[in-house]
Amino acid sequence: MNRFEVVTPADVEHASAMIAKPNCAAIAGGVDVLDLQKLGVTRTATLVNLKPLAAMNGIDEKPGGDLRLGALVKLHEVAEHPVIRKRFSAISDAARQAATPQIRNLGTVGGNLLQRPRCWYFRNPLTNCLKKGGDRCFSVGGLNRYHAIFGGGPSFIVHPSNLAPALVAFGASAHIVGPGGVRTVELEKFFALPSVDPHRENDLKAGEIITEIIVPAPARGARSIYIEAREKQSFDWPLVSVAAVIVANGKTVSQARIVMGAVAPIPWRVPDAERTLAGMAPSEENARAAAKIAIKNAAPLPDNGYKVKIAEVLVRRAILGAASEAATASDQT
């Protein structure tokens, strides 16, 4: 690992000004930042330590029912928090299935959303791939079993965050502090396809820092679920994950939001599938039909066609899983 200095800023604004400078980057939990430094994929000279910034920490339930997650909140806190488990269970499920116990004790919400892709060409310091300023994506014509089946091109990475699909399914927004001031952006619009810019996975500008995530209060009768398929059960990155938030009134679905992870360079929402469910009973048959629609635009690479089938099955299971809970909740309320 290259030598670097660690600077502790007084506040978020100071941190933002510092990381806007070349060869500076923010560090919080440090899991991905140190991994990339050790690999030599990055050789940042100054790391700006966000950990002591208390304003970026904490989990709060707002009076209106919104959830505020400080960007420095650790994944284990998200996984264990009683309010999140009860009202936003897809988010706690996603956090609980991320990485390992040891990493969940270090990794933060902000870091999970901003971690760089797991693509083996991107992480190999010997390849100058498209994402690192090179002229080609080596997954094209290379080994691509874990790569994108939706939204690929010119880069075919998949977004590695577990929390992102769950947060997008809940319509969460990020508060961002930067040199230009403060802004709030819906996470669905925050993540950016490689066709926009292959060098980054989101809309974070130089010097900008995510300070907190706001998850709006779910509608009455809403239930959520996050499930994933992996090669290794103890811990692994998902081959495909699905987050679903389903609102049911009586026996019909009034609203559904379905977001897949690990299938595209961004969390991949499937509005067509969501629309087919609206006004319908959350039956096995309707879930099966919606799942077919969810995968209809899949464009797999030579090695990853298997992910299309997994995605279809997981979408169906997620709909049925969330809907059965939503129906129960709706009966009770």
Binding site: F4, V6, T8
Partner: peptide, 13 residues
């Protein structure tokens, strides 16, 4: 303990 507003700089040495 860091007083409010102070900045700590460690390293690279």
């Amino acid at each position: 303990p860091m007083p409010a507003g102070a900045v700590e700089r460690l390293g690279p040495g």
